[in-house]
């Protein structure tokens, strides 16, 4: 299957000195859900910002490598142009326009349609997936609950009718029950619209349960990749990202001892 998004040997440097990504490569095939896992500071968010052109706004820079979206080289393209081509970034922590209403947030996202869909916006698709947003359409979104805000953030992406959606930690700050609900809807959106997705997560258990394919990122490089179901049973992944290994509970001392010797690093 053709890749909707393809990242090859990406190097990212902040402030001209601090190298954050080292030769990172990954691919998101059309219509599939791919997850990128890693701990704090591994470079997950930086990867997404590099793909969607937000790096220069934070003194970051793509020092090498290539990003290809929908068959074209899009490395270093301006972020609003990428959004208009159909590469939509749902940023970490929702990042809504908090002083605007739910509906106004959706209208703002219509800018990502560019000239592809000049017709007036119709939010019925969004309200179909998220009936609660329809009830709150005229409320200032800063006062919504965390789950509802995440729904609105995803709704904004839907409005843009994208080809690929990048999610940055959709589970951040949400109760486990809400996380399950959000991921269920993400999967339904994928099935209904065929949009490809790249989901960055720290919650590896949920992410691997809902994705088709997974990458594991450490210190700015991909350490492991594979089908999500296979990754979920990989002993190292279980140990370091799913909080347990085969053979029942281990003592903290064992884990600590083991930390120094990840198998894939040897």
């Amino acid at each position: 299957m053709a890749n909707a998004l393809e990242v090859t040997a990406l190097d990212v440097v902040y402030g001209g000195t601090l190298q954050v990504l080292r030769g990172l490569s990954l691919a998101v095939p059309e219509g599939r859900v791919v997850t990128l896992l890693g701990s704090n500071g591994a470079g997950k968010t930086t990867t997404l910002k590099a793909i969607t052109g937000l790096l220069p706004l934070e003194h970051g820079e793509i020092a090498g490598g290539q990003v290809r979206f929908a068959g074209a080289d899009t490395t270093r393209l301006a972020p609003h142009l990428l959004a208009r081509r159909g590469l939509f970034h749902v940023r970490e922590g929702r990042q809504l326009f908090t002083d605007m209403t739910v509906e106004e947030n959706l209208i703002a996202a219509c800018n990502a349609l560019g000239t592809r869909h000049p017709a007036p916006p119709d939010f019925e698709e969004v309200y179909g997936f998220f009936p609660r947003l329809k009830e709150r359409a005229r409320q200032v979104c800063g006062y919504l609950s965390g789950g509802e805000q995440q729904m609105l953030a995803i709704g904004r992406a839907l409005v843009a009718k994208p080809r690929v959606i990048l999610f940055d930690e959709p589970s951040l700050g949400l109760a486990p029950k809400v996380v399950a609900e959000i991921f269920g809807i993400i999967r339904r959106i994928n099935a209904a619209t065929g949009v490809a997705m790249l989901i960055v997560e720290q919650n590896a258990r949920v992410a691997l349960a809902h994705a088709d394919y997974g990458y594991i990122l450490e210190s700015g490089a991909i350490m492991l990749e594979g089908e999500a179901a296979r990754l979920a049973t990989n002993p190292d992944v279980k140990n370091f990202y799913l909080g347990g290994a085969e053979g029942g509970r281990r003592s903290f001392r064992d884990v600590k001892h083991y930390r120094g010797a990840k198998r894939w690093l040897n």
Binding site: L54, A83, F88, L96, F97, T98, M100, A108, A109, A160
Partner: peptide, 11 residues
């Protein structure tokens, strides 16, 4: 409200 977020939604 936020320049970065405005960029991200295609503005």
């Amino acid at each position: 409200s936020s320049q970065v977020n405005a960029y991200a939604v295609g503005i």
